[in-house]
Design a protein around this nucleic acid. Structure first.
Lengths: 138, 138
DNA sequence: TATTTAGTTTATAATTAATCTAAAGTAGAA
DNA sequence: TTCTACTTTAGATTAATTATAAACTAAATA
């Protein structure tokens, strides 16, 4: 993707195409690979790989703005940290409880049978399956 | 359950039966109902229902000691908080994304078919299914 | 192109959950 | 009882996240 594409993508969704946001788009969306990251991870990536020092506050704002627009997805784990995922399609995860490493599982690789009825008056928004793993040697 | 039972339970598992731990046992295990709580919730319960002011540090220590002994279970959610559960059997949860309310789902109410193979060299420790719900009117 | 203005970025402070520390307290063994 | 090791406590610390207010900048307007 070209910078211009990111600029249009941002503009079309009502986000001003600032220098910082464009760079963050490059970091997150300029590849086919899925990224799993915390905001802190992203800060390091911007610094090391892009030589851009963007303040944490801006990174939090931008990641949350992107989440609101559906460009990234927040992942539910039992950690004290929030993980984000550039794969916004419905899918699940392996989670390495030692290294905190995440691996995608396609939604069609897991079949949920007999989903129980939600409590009265409530409806299902999303189902998250987390398969916690660790090294065999542990 | 009698206090003496809790004292023995604690002693048998190598935990000193202190006044604070016995009271916490009463609060958590003196009922058939399942409790879902954060350490902060527990602090309020001890204060309001038992008129015991126990320091947060002690509550953290005790809950983690109980977790290590398998008396409570830590639950993985996408929150910034750690939830604990007095239902230590293998089961899943509804999670109300507005109110943070948890509801148990018996493990036999959900059937997982086609669990994919974990990444090479890793083995599965636990599977957590969280069904996120919210009120119909939202 | 210069000016305006509304949204953005930044450094810094504030907040929150959780953990650590070191002193005081207490259970249980001798 | 006395002693010792473990426990509790208040208060400090850490780490993730959010709020604030001043400086900045994109883009609309003149």
């Amino acid at each position: 993707m070209e910078n211009l594409d990111f600029i249009n993508k941002l503009r079309n969704s009502g986000l001003r195409p600032t220098k910082q946001r464009i760079k963050i788009c490059e970091a997150l969306f300029n590849t086919d690979k899925t990224f799993h990251f915390t905001v802190n991870d992203l800060a390091e990536i911007m610094q090391k790989n892009f030589n851009e020092k963007i303040s944490l506050a801006t990174l939090y704002n931008t990641v949350h703005a992107f989440k609101k627009k559906g460009y990234v997805k927040e992942i539910s784990l039992g950690n004290d940290k929030s993980y984000f995922d550039t794969n916004v399609s419905f899918h699940h995860h392996f989670f390495d409880i030692r290294t905190n490493e995440l691996t995608d599982i396609n939604s069609n690789e897991i079949e949920l049978k007999n989903i129980p009825n939600p409590p009265k008056g409530k409806s299902i928004k999303e189902i998250d399956v987390v398969i916690n793993v660790e090294n065999d040697s542990q």
